Amino acid sequence: MTALSVHDAVEGLGVQSLALKWPNDLLIDGAKVSGILIESAPGPTGHPSADPLLAIGIGVNITAAPDDTPYPATCLIGHGVSITPLDLLARLATAFQARAAQWNRGAGFETIRNDWLARARGVGGPITIRLHDEVIEGEFVSLDADGALEIRAGDTLRKISAGDVFFPNTPSRNSA
Protein backbone atom coordinates (compact mmCIF):
# COMPACT_ATOMS: atom_id res chain seq x y z
CA MET A 1 0.00 0.00 0.00
CA THR A 2 2.81 2.40 0.88
CA ALA A 3 4.79 1.64 -2.29
CA LEU A 4 1.68 2.17 -4.39
CA SER A 5 1.07 5.50 -2.65
CA VAL A 6 4.58 6.70 -3.50
CA HIS A 7 4.14 5.43 -7.07
CA ASP A 8 0.81 7.28 -7.39
CA ALA A 9 2.25 10.53 -6.01
CA VAL A 10 5.27 10.48 -8.35
CA GLU A 11 3.21 9.38 -11.34
CA GLY A 12 0.91 12.34 -10.67
CA LEU A 13 3.91 14.60 -11.31
CA GLY A 14 4.08 13.34 -14.87
CA VAL A 15 7.06 11.04 -14.40
CA GLN A 16 7.21 8.23 -16.95
CA SER A 17 8.85 4.78 -16.83
CA LEU A 18 7.98 4.08 -13.19
CA ALA A 19 8.17 0.60 -11.71
CA LEU A 20 8.08 -0.93 -8.24
CA LYS A 21 10.98 -3.12 -7.15
CA TRP A 22 10.10 -5.63 -4.47
CA PRO A 23 9.74 -5.09 -1.62
CA ASN A 24 10.08 -1.37 -1.13
CA ASP A 25 11.63 0.68 -3.91
CA LEU A 26 10.32 2.94 -6.67
CA LEU A 27 12.35 3.03 -9.88
CA ILE A 28 12.48 5.50 -12.76
CA ASP A 29 14.01 4.01 -15.90
CA GLY A 30 15.42 1.22 -13.71
CA ALA A 31 17.13 3.53 -11.19
CA LYS A 32 15.99 3.88 -7.58
CA VAL A 33 14.27 7.18 -6.78
CA SER A 34 12.56 6.14 -3.54
CA GLY A 35 12.91 3.61 -0.76
CA ILE A 36 10.55 2.65 2.02
CA LEU A 37 11.25 1.15 5.43
CA ILE A 38 8.44 -0.21 7.58
CA GLU A 39 8.83 -1.35 11.17
CA SER A 40 6.01 -2.87 13.19
CA ALA A 41 5.42 -3.75 16.81
CA PRO A 42 2.50 -5.25 18.71
CA GLY A 43 -0.24 -2.75 19.53
CA PRO A 44 -1.72 -1.95 22.94
CA THR A 45 -3.18 -5.45 23.37
CA GLY A 46 0.24 -7.04 22.82
CA HIS A 47 -1.04 -9.32 20.06
CA PRO A 48 0.97 -8.84 16.81
CA SER A 49 -2.08 -8.97 14.51
CA ALA A 50 -4.39 -6.77 16.60
CA ASP A 51 -3.81 -3.12 15.68
CA PRO A 52 -0.01 -3.23 15.37
CA LEU A 53 1.98 -0.05 15.67
CA LEU A 54 3.73 0.96 12.44
CA ALA A 55 6.57 3.31 11.69
CA ILE A 56 6.85 4.07 7.98
CA GLY A 57 9.88 5.85 6.59
CA ILE A 58 9.78 7.05 2.99
CA GLY A 59 12.77 8.60 1.26
CA VAL A 60 12.40 10.25 -2.13
CA ASN A 61 15.39 11.65 -3.99
CA ILE A 62 14.09 15.05 -5.05
CA THR A 63 17.16 17.07 -6.05
CA ALA A 64 20.06 14.63 -5.70
CA ALA A 65 20.82 10.92 -5.68
CA PRO A 66 23.62 9.05 -3.92
CA ASP A 67 26.49 7.72 -6.01
CA ASP A 68 27.74 4.93 -3.74
CA THR A 69 24.81 2.50 -3.79
CA PRO A 70 24.47 -1.16 -4.74
CA TYR A 71 21.72 -0.22 -7.21
CA PRO A 72 21.70 2.75 -9.64
CA ALA A 73 19.92 5.79 -8.16
CA THR A 74 18.27 8.86 -9.63
CA CYS A 75 16.32 11.93 -8.53
CA LEU A 76 13.13 13.69 -9.59
CA ILE A 77 14.86 16.84 -10.83
CA GLY A 78 16.91 14.64 -13.16
CA HIS A 79 13.62 13.72 -14.82
CA GLY A 80 12.38 17.27 -15.18
CA VAL A 81 10.38 17.47 -11.94
CA SER A 82 10.94 20.40 -9.62
CA ILE A 83 8.92 20.08 -6.41
CA THR A 84 9.38 21.07 -2.79
CA PRO A 85 9.40 18.43 -0.07
CA LEU A 86 6.17 19.89 1.39
CA ASP A 87 4.38 19.77 -1.97
CA LEU A 88 5.51 16.18 -2.48
CA LEU A 89 4.37 15.31 1.05
CA ALA A 90 0.91 16.76 0.32
CA ARG A 91 0.65 14.63 -2.84
CA LEU A 92 1.86 11.59 -0.94
CA ALA A 93 -0.67 12.14 1.87
CA THR A 94 -3.52 12.29 -0.66
CA ALA A 95 -2.31 9.14 -2.42
CA PHE A 96 -1.80 7.34 0.89
CA GLN A 97 -5.31 8.20 2.04
CA ALA A 98 -6.77 6.76 -1.18
CA ARG A 99 -4.70 3.58 -0.93
CA ALA A 100 -5.56 3.18 2.78
CA ALA A 101 -9.25 3.30 1.89
CA GLN A 102 -8.63 0.69 -0.81
CA TRP A 103 -6.68 -1.45 1.70
CA ASN A 104 -9.62 -1.28 4.14
CA ARG A 105 -7.76 -2.89 7.07
CA GLY A 106 -6.71 -5.81 4.87
CA ALA A 107 -10.06 -6.52 3.21
CA GLY A 108 -8.75 -4.97 -0.01
CA PHE A 109 -5.41 -6.79 -0.04
CA GLU A 110 -6.11 -8.67 -3.27
CA THR A 111 -6.77 -5.40 -5.13
CA ILE A 112 -3.64 -3.84 -3.61
CA ARG A 113 -1.64 -6.95 -4.59
CA ASN A 114 -2.96 -6.84 -8.17
CA ASP A 115 -2.25 -3.09 -8.47
CA TRP A 116 1.27 -3.65 -7.12
CA LEU A 117 1.95 -6.50 -9.55
CA ALA A 118 0.69 -4.38 -12.48
CA ARG A 119 3.39 -1.80 -11.62
CA ALA A 120 6.17 -4.22 -10.66
CA ARG A 121 9.41 -4.55 -12.52
CA GLY A 122 10.38 -7.98 -13.73
CA VAL A 123 7.32 -10.18 -13.16
CA GLY A 124 7.69 -13.27 -15.32
CA GLY A 125 11.37 -12.62 -15.96
CA PRO A 126 14.74 -13.47 -14.47
CA ILE A 127 15.60 -12.15 -11.03
CA THR A 128 18.39 -12.52 -8.50
CA ILE A 129 17.70 -12.39 -4.76
CA ARG A 130 20.59 -11.85 -2.38
CA LEU A 131 19.92 -13.18 1.10
CA HIS A 132 22.31 -12.97 4.03
CA ASP A 133 23.56 -16.52 3.41
CA GLU A 134 22.77 -17.31 -0.24
CA VAL A 135 22.02 -15.97 -3.69
CA ILE A 136 18.94 -17.26 -5.50
CA GLU A 137 18.50 -16.91 -9.25
CA GLY A 138 15.25 -17.73 -10.97
CA GLU A 139 12.00 -16.38 -12.37
CA PHE A 140 9.96 -13.71 -10.56
CA VAL A 141 6.59 -15.48 -10.46
CA SER A 142 4.33 -13.31 -8.30
CA LEU A 143 3.52 -12.18 -4.77
CA ASP A 144 1.80 -14.60 -2.43
CA ALA A 145 -1.22 -13.81 -0.23
CA ASP A 146 1.10 -12.34 2.42
CA GLY A 147 3.13 -10.20 0.00
CA ALA A 148 6.16 -12.50 -0.10
CA LEU A 149 7.99 -12.67 -3.42
CA GLU A 150 7.56 -15.96 -5.23
CA ILE A 151 10.58 -17.07 -7.23
CA ARG A 152 10.91 -20.25 -9.27
CA ALA A 153 14.45 -21.57 -8.98
CA GLY A 154 14.69 -24.71 -11.06
CA ASP A 155 11.75 -26.92 -10.10
CA THR A 156 11.23 -25.20 -6.74
CA LEU A 157 8.87 -22.33 -5.97
CA ARG A 158 10.35 -20.35 -3.08
CA LYS A 159 8.73 -17.62 -1.06
CA ILE A 160 11.02 -14.81 0.04
CA SER A 161 9.98 -12.35 2.73
CA ALA A 162 13.22 -10.31 2.84
CA GLY A 163 16.16 -9.91 0.49
CA ASP A 164 17.90 -7.66 -2.02
CA VAL A 165 16.50 -7.87 -5.55
CA PHE A 166 18.54 -7.46 -8.72
CA PHE A 167 17.56 -7.85 -12.34
CA PRO A 168 19.77 -8.93 -15.26
CA ASN A 169 21.45 -6.05 -17.08
CA THR A 170 21.12 -3.83 -14.01
CA PRO A 171 24.63 -2.67 -13.21
CA SER A 172 25.54 -3.12 -9.59
CA ARG A 173 27.60 -0.20 -8.32
CA ASN A 174 29.32 -2.33 -5.71
CA SER A 175 29.18 -5.89 -4.53
CA ALA A 176 27.56 -5.15 -1.17
Rank of each mutant, 00 (worst) to 15 (best):
P44I: 06
A93V: 12
S5E: 08
L117D: 01
L92E: 06
I62G: 03
S17R: 15
P48D: 01
T128V: 14
I56C: 10
G57I: 06
A176I: 07
A107T: 10
K159L: 00
A65L: 02
V15M: 03
N174R: 13
D25Y: 06
D67I: 06
P168S: 08
A101W: 05
P70T: 11
D25W: 08
T111P: 05
L18G: 07
L18V: 07
A120H: 02
A148V: 03
T74K: 10
I129N: 06
I36L: 08
P126A: 14
N174I: 03
P66H: 05
A120K: 06
D25S: 05
D164A: 12
G124M: 11
R130N: 10
A90D: 15
G12N: 03
R113Y: 03
F167E: 12
W103Y: 15
R113W: 02
S5G: 15
E134H: 11
A107P: 02
E39V: 01
V33M: 02
A101K: 14
D133I: 03
G57A: 13
P23I: 05
L37I: 15
Q16I: 07
G78C: 07
K32L: 04
I38P: 06
S175K: 06
V33F: 02
A153K: 11
F166N: 09
D144S: 00
H79I: 09
T63W: 03
P52H: 02
A55V: 15
D146F: 00
T69H: 05
I127A: 13
A73M: 14
D144N: 10
W116P: 11
R158K: 13
E39K: 06
T45D: 14
S40D: 03
F166S: 13
L76N: 10
D144L: 00
I62Y: 02
I112R: 09
A50Y: 00
D67P: 00
L37N: 08
P42F: 04
K159P: 00
P168M: 08
N61E: 05
A107D: 13
N104M: 01
G59M: 04
E110M: 04
N104F: 01
G122Y: 09
H47K: 14
G59A: 04
N114G: 05
A153T: 13
A148F: 11
K32I: 09
N174K: 09
G125P: 00
A64S: 14
A95Q: 10
S40K: 07
H132L: 09
V123T: 14
V81I: 15
L117N: 03
G14A: 04
E110S: 11
A93W: 08
G124P: 07
V81S: 08
P44W: 00
Q102C: 13
H7C: 09
L76Y: 08
K21N: 12
P171S: 10
G35H: 07
L149E: 00
D87M: 11
R152C: 05
R119E: 06
P42W: 01
L53H: 07
N169F: 10
P85C: 09
L117R: 14
A3M: 08
A118F: 01
L26S: 04
A107C: 04
G147P: 11
S17G: 07
A145P: 00
P23C: 02
T170L: 12
F140R: 08
E150L: 15
